[in-house]
Amino acid sequence: MITVYVFSQALFAAGWNDPAVTLHWGWHGSIPSEMHEETLPVRSHGYVTLEGTVLSVHLMRSLSVQLQGLVSYTTPSLPSQGVYWVDFLTLGAGPSLLLELSPTTDIVAGINSVLQLPDDERGVITFLSPFAAISHTLSTIKRGEIHVTIPLSVELRSDFTALKAGIGITYRFRSNAL
């Protein structure tokens, strides 16, 4: 017990308050540029993302700054006339702000720096991805809370832009419950 207590206090001292793990999935829309000469305005993929808030520091009673990391897989797009947009794997990290709108509703906004793992001659691709999410507490359990989350994000690539919208589940540890 003493070890757990000391460890948890050390985490608090390092700013580890209310860490969270989120799994979300949904629609990824690649918006082709003019050079792609696509007949479709958007290419529809699916995606799944596992995201972890690794650092969370309370600035005020209802406002926190966080640092999150993620790994995400985006599926191949639906084909059209035989052409499809390829699948890819990304890693990302970045800061965000979390605002507690009410005891059961949070809103978070931030920006991730994302790295797409190489799969062809393009090599590693990097881009920024601003995002926002709203979450609602589903239930409170012994060591934390379970939320339903609706995240939205944008991928600001140099050759095209992509939008992501999904739905997910967040498990947020409560520091006072550790």
Binding site: P41, R43, S44, Q81, G166
Partner: peptide, 22 residues
């Protein structure tokens, strides 16, 4: 609301209005 938004976004791509394959 979340599911509705996802469906709207999916159909906005128009893939379903064209043949998938050659």
């Amino acid at each position: 609301a979340g599911i509705t938004v996802l469906l709207i976004l999916l159909f906005s791509g128009c893939e379903l209005s064209r043949p998938f394959y050659t």
